[in-house]
Write a protein that binds this DNA or RNA. Structure first.
Lengths: 227, 227
DNA sequence: GCCAGAATCTGACGGTGTGTCAGACATTGT
DNA sequence: ACAATGTCTGACACACCGTCAGATTCTGGC
């Protein structure tokens, strides 16, 4: 537990935070950084992405633009951190798939649980997720990585369920489990993202849930769900 | 065909184009406007949306920023026009659904056709579509309207197929046809949007097509597709 | 308590983009 | 040839960006 290498100056990195000038921020610094992150998030939810300005974030945080640049090279970088935090929190979605039962008669309930979790998660991270999607589409590798990390675990978990169904002969062997799972995750993600769009369109959320869960349940187990 | 109301000055509107100063542009004007639109599109595909600047569009079009503002209040407005043009072209997707056969043994082929059309369409309008998605998420009603118009026709067409399947007793009556169709369209749209993301992830496009079509085919007809 | 030195913040500045004029320039009909 | 009308742009005031050098605040050692 004590310092193991007194001679060589160990740049103990791992998750070392660095300010613009290369220094490791102390307590106060990290607090300001957090404040800036929070305000970035707030701006992101209340303003069009195009119009999120460093100067506004700084004003909101009760500091100056120069301070912002002390901790982040630009708005995108701050958003990236927010996205990483979000992806962290998304890991629990995976558990619903691996812990839940996909047996006949129970699959639909598990699917519904997954759908609900998706809807809640997407709703509470809307503003960051839409930037992640945009940046990914625009070919930004950093955001793409986060997006993949978030969805990959969920997809592989679902793919494993598909593989089981294939063994049981309920889903054709010609199906690629990852493709099947990926398509379902895409459906979940996009529906969740445009949730309120559907409502506005005259579709009740309860009906939406039902249809989403139905597609997931069948797509993953090959079992036709009960009404 | 001749002027019918010589006394009252008829503001013949309908689809009257207006410049910033309220005048109706002539030939040269409309040409410049088109040139600006084309350059906006080009910028949109080659640059992050945040970084598309009026000055760049103008430079590219060989004109000055002031000219841009003659025809559009801002970059978003120009994008809106591009989005409208795109939505127009999307109408043909609807035909695939209404003209195709969803009978047993043929549904999968129709579904595949639909999937392919989606993939092609999304690919050739990627840059505009991602802005439409972003702006819609951000609550911009104008983009939302376009998005709905594009997807609504497709969704109602699919919903009609679902309704038939319900009559035939292959899909439970408790399902809301629009919800079922909406979920499938969401899947198609999102998968198409992140097409190359899947490839990068090790999934072959052929397998993706297959899984997409499978979900559509079953979700819409209730018939389990053949391998 | 005081102070040196480290950590943190900011005012001020040159650079670039925005959005708006008034007026220069082009085109057209007579 | 010369209005009248349509089209474009230079110039400007304003806002934000991103970067310093130096002011301000904190901290540990005495």
């Amino acid at each position: 537990m004590s310092e193991p290498t007194p001679l060589r100056r160990v740049e103990d990195h791992s998750e070392e935070l660095r300010a613009a000038d290369g220094r490791v921020p102390g307590l106060r610094g990290r607090a300001t950084r957090q404040r800036l992150l929070a305000c970035t998030l707030e701006m992101l939810t209340s303003t069009s992405y195009r119009d999120v300005k460093v100067i506004d974030i700084a004003r909101e945080a009760g500091t100056s633009p120069a301070t912002f640049y002390q901790y982040f090279p630009d708005v995108e970088a701050a958003t990236l951190v927010l996205a990483e935090e979000m992806a962290q929190q998304g890991q629990h979605l995976r558990l619903i798939i691996t812990e839940g039962s996909w047996l006949e008669g129970e699959a639909m309930a598990t699917a519904l649980e997954l759908v609900d979790a998706f809807l809640v998660f997407w709703d509470s991270h809307r503003s960051v997720l839409r930037v992640v999607d945009l940046a990914t589409d625009e070919g930004d590798g950093r955001f793409q990585k986060i997006r993949v990390r978030l969805l990959n675990d969920i997809t592989t978990a679902l793919a494993e369920v598909v593989r089981q169904a294939q063994k049981a002969g309920r889903i054709p062997k010609t199906i690629d489990p990852m493709a099947a799972a990926g398509v379902l995750v895409a459906m979940l993600a996009h529906t969740a993202a445009h949730q309120y769009g559907f409502e506005f369109w005259g579709i009740r959320t309860a009906k939406l849930r039902q249809s989403m869960a139905r597609q997931v349940s069948w797509g993953v187990t090959g079992i036709i769900p009960p009404d």
